[in-house]
């Protein structure tokens, strides 16, 4: 990973996540091998690569969702704003680093309760504050105009794209700094996808976003940085423009040009 470290030194951007020598094992299988990379503040970082390459696993390391799996063992260092996440309170970490999943997974409650869920879990009970958080989060997720008349209706009555934006709003309600998105548009139709992509572009101003995607066009459209994973290795990490126009590694070139299945 010589190339990466030299690249990183050139960047003067503020680093949110610093990942050093990250290895991850599922029982006996190694899923991530010596990952070294930085995630920069208020940028969109896309993680691409073939299925099973470890990009989702890597994403789940960042808010310690892999802790839930007993068979999963992690070595190496992940620093969030200069702090080792192993020493951080998971709950605090997860309020700072939100996550949006592949399938829209709103809770079977009202739209309002879905968004108020996170703040309520943190012990917030004041109604006026909750109301305000719900409205601002929905506005930020560009969903407010569509649902403002039916905040008390079940979240399951929304369409798939609306549900996914609701999940993003739910995540924003906690006031995170960073949002992890695990293939957020793979279950959506093209129109809903473009809406979510627009939203990502807007959110970039205030949030650091890390997005896993299968779709390389999507990576070029939305991201500033791209990391290419293969079989648990981080092959290349670079600015998106450079990565897609002048890939430095042969494997990256092959993947971009479609020579890998």
């Amino acid at each position: 990973m010589e190339i990466n470290s030299t690249q990183l030194e050139e960047n003067k951007e503020e680093v949110v996540f610093k990942i050093k020598d990250l290895n991850l094992f599922y029982s006996n299988k190694q899923a991530l091998k010596n990952i070294n990379m930085n995630i920069y503040k208020n940028k969109v970082t896309a993680l691409i690569g073939p299925s099973g390459c470890g990009k989702s696993t890597f994403l789940r390391c960042l808010n310690r969702m892999n802790d839930l799996n007993d068979e999963c063992k992690i070595t190496g260092l992940i620093e969030y704003e200069g702090q080792d996440i192993k020493d951080m309170n998971t709950i605090l970490l997860r309020t700072k680093v939100g996550m949006v999943f592949q399938q829209p997974n709103p809770f079977p409650m009202s739209i309002y309760d879905n968004i108020a869920y996170g703040p309520r879990c943190q012990g917030l009970k004041n109604r006026a504050t909750l109301d305000e958080i719900v409205v601002t989060s929905l506005k930020e997720a560009a969903l407010y105009d569509e649902v403002k008349d039916r905040l008390r209706k079940s979240s399951l009555s929304l369409s798939g794209g609306q549900q996914q934006r609701l999940c993003i709003a739910r995540c924003l309600a906690l006031g995170p700094d960073c949002i992890l998105m695990d293939e957020p548009t793979s279950a959506l139709d093209p129109i809903a996808t473009s809406k979510v992509e627009e939203l990502i572009a807007e959110l970039k101003e205030n949030y650091t976003i890390i997005i896993v995607t299968h779709n390389m066009q999507q990576a070029t459209r939305v991201s500033d940085y791209t990391a290419f994973f293969m079989l648990g290795d981080l092959i290349e990490f670079n600015k998106t423009e450079e990565f897609f126009s002048h890939p430095k590694e042969k494997k990256s070139y092959d993947y971009i040009t479609g020579r890998f299945s």
Binding site: N63, M65, R94, T95, M99, F101, P106, F107, C121, Q122
Partner: peptide, 27 residues
């Protein structure tokens, strides 16, 4: 109960107990 629901709850900074009582039990 879909695992994605309890995952979502945990990812929103809810503790396991909160997840159990607010998501798993009602469902």
């Amino acid at each position: 109960i879909p695992k994605s629901l309890s995952d979502a709850s945990l990812a929103l900074g809810a503790s396991q107990t909160q997840t159990t009582f607010k998501v798993i039990l009602p469902n």
